[in-house]
Design a protein around this nucleic acid. Structure first.
Lengths: 211, 211
DNA sequence: GTCTATACTACGATAGAC
DNA sequence: GTCTATCGTAGTATAGAC
């Protein structure tokens, strides 16, 4: 019980303040235990940080499981299925980014994206790498684009959803609100879906220009 | 001289470690001076943090100046000019996100986006708010979309470029490289430009569906 | 397994010398 | 304007009691 409670708090604290900014005393206190419990269960601050990364990867993998499990087995010729798959993965991703729970761990990930440490390996291997690779593969199947083009397109597609977190405050200002309502989220998701179809169509058209 | 050197280091340190993670001693040492210089010039750690935010806003405003100055005066009827403007602003933004200098201050901004403090006001007022508002306005002019739709579209468009920073490590993994070459950047920019045209076309088509 | 006690290092702020 | 010295606080780690 204590270990899992420590981990929950650790994710929040590390996310908000970073590895150096968060304090083991603060984490332990918030978890209602003593600091030395961290040493015992995780071997120290660094160990707790890595455990937090693993837990985040597991959380994302869990959230994305349904979608990715189906999408991963779509075969080469199924352009329609691949297209639907791209949209479904992005919708799932948008929900994840907009979810309140992601507020805690998203900063953890973004920090690792910009200044990767060993923890990035865990995040990438555990969840994010597979997700992005699947998406790139689906884009390739849906449009017939070469691998490199499909990869670049996949990143721009994902960027639309990550903006919900990484540009959140700016977004809220623009919409003149202070929380994202279900209505807002639906509107954004509809926009992303429409954009995605437009982009995929464009990739197909580009391919036919250069035979 | 000392103040400006302190500020440069402060942006890097606060970006990497956050307000709480960075240490005044560390910043002062890296700037080759004593910690009390921070107290003298900026009144303390918090003052230095806010000064860093102002400086970052100024850096971005400077980088975006050419584009935004022109784009801001495009008038209501000029759909073609507005469309070109959208693409130009996004290209400038992509260059900014990919630039090595942005590696230092981008984490600062993203942190403020997810957990805004007073410093976010400065960033938003000084640069980011104007940029995004201009973009949303141009999207509206270029497509005739309602304000709310144009705002949401603007966010998704910007998201494509911010992914260059906020999902950087993941992106590099996918492309199986460890730095973004000029070739890579050109390819991404071309993709973003093409996506943007596709998205704007789609917005126009949607408008004609519902007259 | 969990907590208390302790050792040691580093933090930010301030006062005062130069 | 810039530095040194110092204070009080808070950080991690470890040893040992329960």
């Amino acid at each position: 019980m204590t270990p899992s409670r420590l981990l929950d708090i650790a994710i929040r604290e590390f996310g908000a303040k970073g590895l150096e900014g968060a304090s083991t005393r603060g984490i332990a206190a918030a978890a209602g235990t003593a600091m030395s419990a961290i040493t015992y269960h995780y071997g120290g601050k660094e160990g707790l940080y890595l455990a937090a990364a693993d837990r985040i990867a597991a959380l994302i993998a869990e959230r994305m499981r349904d979608g990715l499990a189906i999408e991963a087995v779509i075969d080469e010729g199924d352009t329609g299925g691949a297209r639907d798959g791209v949209v479904r993965v992005l919708m799932q991703l948008a929900d994840t980014m907009a979810s309140v729970e992601s507020e805690e761990w998203a900063p953890f990930i973004v920090r690792e994206q910009m200044h990767p440490t060993v923890a990035f390996e865990r995040l990438h291997a555990g969840a994010m790498g597979t997700m992005l690779a699947t998406l790139a593969r689906l884009v390739g199947i849906a449009t017939g684009a070469r691998s490199r083009i499909a990869c670049i397109a996949a990143i721009t597609l994902v960027g639309q959803t990550t903006a919900l977190r990484a540009s959140r405050a700016m977004f809220l200002r623009l919409l003149e609100t202070d929380t994202l309502t279900d209505d807002d989220l639906d509107a954004v998701k509809a926009r992303i879906a429409a954009n995605t179809h437009a982009i995929l169509d464009r990739l197909i058209a580009e391919r036919q220009d250069l035979p």
